[in-house]
Simulated assay, not measured.
Amino acid sequence: MKHLLEKVLSSKQVFRGRYLKVEQDQVQAPDGKTYVREYILHPGAAMMIPLLSNEKVVMVHQYRHAVKQVFLEFPAGKRDRGEETLLTARRELREETGYEAKDWKFLTTIHPVIGYSNEHIDLFLARDLTAAPQQLDHGEFLEVVEVSPDELMKFVREGKVTDVKTQIGAFWLDKILHGEWN
């Protein structure tokens, strides 16, 4: 597959925000021609599937400004500099939902937007939940809800859950609960 790699000839940062950076590279492609590639550098994130003892999952309703909609999502958040994603997951679960988990299981890593970002999200199953104080970030507004796995899968089928990380988490949860994956 090395024959598909592109050689970076030059790179420059064209935007630097609080969390995201936009890079522009000039590359030599396998055909020998030069092309421009623009992409977003992202610090990485963690998403949790918090499973309650009653078999419901803890989710959040959150407004996403880029698409001007409120979404039903699993809790998730960006990594702080140098932070391991399990620590990110623990911190974000407490901040967003007001829960802590004693049992954590890493499920997988996803790359949700490979066409224009290096973003990766580590997915975790969180069990043995206990209530803790919710600690929302400044300017963060969420509504915490409990959803049954069957209801969640219905929402996915009906197009009511379109957030890709949440859809992937729903499919993982379904397989785990049906004993198809450990």
Score class of each variant (00 low, 15 high):
residue 50 P to N: 09
residue 11 S to R: 06
residue 33 K to C: 10
residue 8 V to W: 03
residue 7 K to E: 14
residue 49 I to Q: 04
residue 22 V to T: 14
residue 10 S to H: 03
residue 24 Q to L: 07
residue 7 K to M: 13
residue 15 F to K: 11
residue 10 S to F: 00
residue 46 A to N: 06
residue 42 H to A: 04
residue 42 H to K: 06
residue 38 E to L: 06
residue 47 M to Y: 05
residue 24 Q to H: 05
residue 40 I to C: 02
residue 30 P to I: 03
residue 51 L to E: 06
residue 31 D to P: 15
residue 49 I to F: 05
residue 33 K to M: 09
residue 46 A to I: 07
residue 24 Q to M: 09
residue 13 Q to E: 13
residue 37 R to A: 07
residue 37 R to K: 15
residue 39 Y to Q: 07
residue 43 P to I: 11
residue 22 V to K: 15
residue 38 E to I: 08
residue 22 V to Q: 10
residue 21 K to H: 10
residue 37 R to T: 11
residue 29 A to I: 07
residue 7 K to C: 09
residue 38 E to H: 06
residue 47 M to R: 08
residue 40 I to A: 01
residue 12 K to L: 02
residue 13 Q to H: 02
residue 40 I to T: 08
residue 20 L to C: 05
residue 15 F to E: 10
residue 36 V to Q: 03
residue 19 Y to V: 15
residue 43 P to H: 11
residue 45 A to C: 06
residue 34 T to P: 02
residue 49 I to C: 02
residue 12 K to N: 11
residue 32 G to Q: 07
residue 20 L to F: 15
residue 22 V to S: 06
residue 25 D to E: 14
residue 44 G to N: 04
residue 27 V to K: 00
residue 51 L to K: 07
residue 35 Y to K: 12
residue 29 A to N: 10
residue 11 S to G: 01
residue 47 M to V: 14
residue 26 Q to M: 06
residue 23 E to P: 00
residue 29 A to L: 13
residue 51 L to R: 07
residue 40 I to D: 01
residue 35 Y to T: 05
residue 6 E to M: 15
residue 36 V to R: 00
residue 36 V to A: 00
residue 12 K to A: 01
residue 50 P to R: 11
residue 27 V to E: 00
residue 35 Y to G: 10
residue 25 D to Y: 03
residue 32 G to L: 11
residue 46 A to H: 05
residue 16 R to P: 05
residue 18 R to T: 14
residue 38 E to W: 02
residue 18 R to N: 14
residue 20 L to P: 02
residue 27 V to G: 01
residue 42 H to Q: 05
residue 39 Y to L: 01
residue 24 Q to R: 13
residue 16 R to N: 13
residue 28 Q to H: 01
residue 31 D to N: 15
residue 9 L to T: 00
residue 16 R to Q: 14
residue 50 P to Q: 07
residue 29 A to M: 13
residue 30 P to R: 02
residue 30 P to D: 01
residue 13 Q to K: 12
residue 47 M to F: 10
residue 18 R to F: 12
residue 15 F to V: 05
residue 40 I to Q: 07
residue 16 R to D: 12
residue 36 V to L: 09
residue 25 D to S: 05
residue 35 Y to H: 14
residue 37 R to D: 13
residue 31 D to R: 07
residue 24 Q to Y: 02
residue 18 R to V: 12
residue 41 L to N: 06
residue 7 K to Q: 13
residue 51 L to F: 08
residue 14 V to W: 10
residue 50 P to V: 11
residue 14 V to R: 06
residue 41 L to G: 00
